[in-house]
Simulated scan of single mutants.
Amino acid sequence: MTFEAYHQYFESIIQKSPEQQTAPYNNPDYFDYTKLNWSRMNRWLKTGKITDAMTEAIKAIDSPQQWIIITEPWCGDAAHSVPFLEMISRLNPLLTVSYELRDSEPFRINNYLTNGGKSIPKLVIRDDKGKDLATWGPRPAACQEIYSRLTAEKADFEKVKTELQLWYNADKGLGVQEELTALLLNINRAAAPATLQPAE
């Protein structure tokens, strides 16, 4: 689906009454968290800033790419990263972006597990022939370190959620942009034709 279709799907969940919800949104905790994610996503779409380095790297792409973003409205990490991925992708008309839900067909996440888990969001970057060039996700490395530490400490879900939220608010999308900039530069370098050195 397009971002617009994903956005509409997200909004439709928020607008349903409790008795209209299907799993997992019929769980009040999931629904409340999804409402927060809706606010976060739209806030970043309005206030998020794309760095000069990110802009330069994305505009340097000179051949078509397909970006597949696997996500879900209930995902807190996605609420913070997906808006930046979408805004970045808009900077180059050679990029085609499609959105897929983790828990619906084609269940593509099964091919892109993180440490054996279906962690999202997940960005899959492909060339125009459908060959995978790179993947990113589910969260920036610095944020992942916090998550891994808290998981090892067996921290409760509320503590994990709060600490990650604080990190994302302070980071303002810089982490995902720095990592994606490096990823795209590597792709561009790999695609560049080898330069023959003059014979001595």
Rank of each mutant, 00 (worst) to 15 (best):
174 L>N: 15
40 R>C: 06
155 A>M: 11
13 I>H: 00
188 N>I: 12
191 A>I: 08
141 A>F: 09
12 S>W: 01
111 N>R: 13
5 A>R: 04
5 A>T: 02
80 H>D: 10
127 D>L: 01
60 A>Y: 01
108 R>N: 10
122 K>P: 03
36 L>Y: 14
144 Q>E: 14
43 R>K: 12
135 T>E: 06
146 I>F: 12
1 M>V: 09
134 A>S: 15
6 Y>V: 02
125 I>L: 04
90 R>Q: 13
14 I>Y: 11
110 N>Y: 13
170 A>L: 12
131 K>P: 01
47 T>C: 04
19 E>S: 14
121 P>Y: 07
22 T>I: 11
18 P>T: 08
38 W>R: 09
165 Q>V: 13
195 T>Q: 15
7 H>T: 02
157 F>M: 13
196 L>W: 00
191 A>H: 14
73 P>L: 07
147 Y>H: 12
155 A>S: 14
63 S>K: 05
130 G>D: 01
73 P>E: 03
104 S>V: 07
150 L>W: 02
81 S>G: 01
62 D>I: 06
132 D>Q: 14
129 K>Y: 11
42 N>A: 06
116 G>P: 12
48 G>P: 03
46 K>M: 11
109 I>N: 13
34 T>P: 09
45 L>T: 12
2 T>H: 07
47 T>S: 06
56 E>L: 10
14 I>D: 07
120 I>T: 02
26 N>R: 12
157 F>L: 13
82 V>T: 14
68 I>T: 05
76 G>T: 07
78 A>H: 04
90 R>I: 06
93 P>L: 04
178 E>V: 09
12 S>K: 07
7 H>N: 11
23 A>P: 08
9 Y>F: 12
135 T>V: 02
37 N>A: 07
136 W>C: 13
9 Y>G: 09
175 G>D: 10
192 A>M: 10
29 D>M: 05
151 T>Q: 11
174 L>S: 15
179 E>V: 01
189 R>H: 14
49 K>G: 02
41 M>Q: 13
8 Q>M: 03
9 Y>Q: 00
124 V>N: 08
101 L>M: 06
96 T>P: 03
47 T>Y: 14
149 R>E: 12
117 G>C: 08
6 Y>E: 00
193 P>A: 10
93 P>R: 01
127 D>Q: 03
5 A>Q: 10
179 E>L: 00
185 L>F: 09
94 L>N: 13
154 K>V: 00
